[in-house]
Design a protein around this nucleic acid. Sequence first.
DNA 1: TCTGGGGTCCTAGGACCC
DNA 2: TCTGGGGTCCTAGGACCC
Length: 419
Amino acid sequence: MPYTVFALADCNNFYVSCERVFDPALRDVPVAVLSNNDGCIIARSEEIKALGVPTGGPYFKYKRLLEQHHARVFSSNYALYGDMSQRVMQVLRQAAPEVEVYSIDEAFLHLTGIRCPVDQARRARDTVRQWTGIPAAIGLGPTKTLAKIASRFAKRYPDYGGVFDITDRRDVDDLLSLVHVGDVWGIGPQYTRRLLGQGIQTACQLRDARDAWVKKQLTIMGLRTVYELRGISCLPLEAVRPAKKGITCSRSFGERIETIAALEEAVAAYVTRVAEKLRAQQSIAAILSVFITTKTFGRGPHYQNSYTVTLPNPTAHTPDLIRYAHRCLAKIFKPGFGYRKAGVIATGIMPQDAVQGDLFEKATPSSETALMETVDAINQQWGRGTVFFAASGTRRSWQMQQERSKRYTTRWDEVLVVQ
DNA sequence: TCTGGGGTCCTAGGACCC
DNA sequence: TCTGGGGTCCTAGGACCC
């Protein structure tokens, strides 16, 4: 039985790299990508990192600094990043028998049983680079947590050619001593603070901590992490993505909203998106929640609330869901506030064919299903929002404004033109 | 002072990830 | 003035049941 080999493939500065693929002028200059609503900095090129700009830092705080260094700054373009991600994953799937797409820019690979996993990883990395233009690093180890650490070394020490194997290294203690405990996968800011307070500063020290103590401080999750650091695999590769248990769509508004009419539009638009996501995974939802908030970081009157309904008939039918969402909104709306954000959450998610027929209600007519299928097909071919429900409005003053790059790979009218 | 025991389900809150 | 969005899991506590 060969020992298990996990690999983590991690794209470098993914969103920035996507932008650079389509505009060579962005190479070697500082580039940053902003979150929705242009609020935070969520992707940074190496040049931006060198300026000390943190991930998630509020844009307004660093705007001056970025301008001083002539940084190029983009709103996020998820159509582009999502499509590029699929291309990267497609290449990775050819390199390993089993692949778990962990996030938009990361995938775990099972390289168990492959004769020379490091060579295989090198080939995969080179092919990703060549076929998609995206640079990536790959780390190998006997557990996911160690593979993750290895991928950091792959990025940190370019001499290894972007691939680093931490399996069976005699200097593993030295390597783990170089890793700050807060950089271990699963150890967030709270746990880091607690561990530092107890004198544990490195991954090596965490690995050697007492089981009972770890479990008490960090729960069973933390103990799993410690086992993984010791080379005992506790987190299996999940090649088949389980259906989501909750589906959310929420946004901050471009401007403060005070009327229920505008909130109704926004909520209708969000619940429309939730319904699309439900149908995309062949699911229906039994529970719908709506929340609104005036959340600010400063002072002023604050109000936030949410309301949840259980649907008499679980569904993914947009008009029904809009109706329920509006009912929720009516329960919680209070005039006299400037709302900043709203969201819709679907839970109680089940496969669409698992509907429990209601004795007194007629089942979803097939015409309704056909309508939704048609709407989805049109929007898939012509772009999201080509056809939509009037309830989500046409003016959409609440929608944020942003300046993103072109959707080079998913829209004919935005394809890159070489002159 | 003593006050049954064991189980399930649900929810809220807190931690984590990208 | 300006601080994202979408997920996961665990734990503790309360309600309820026999």
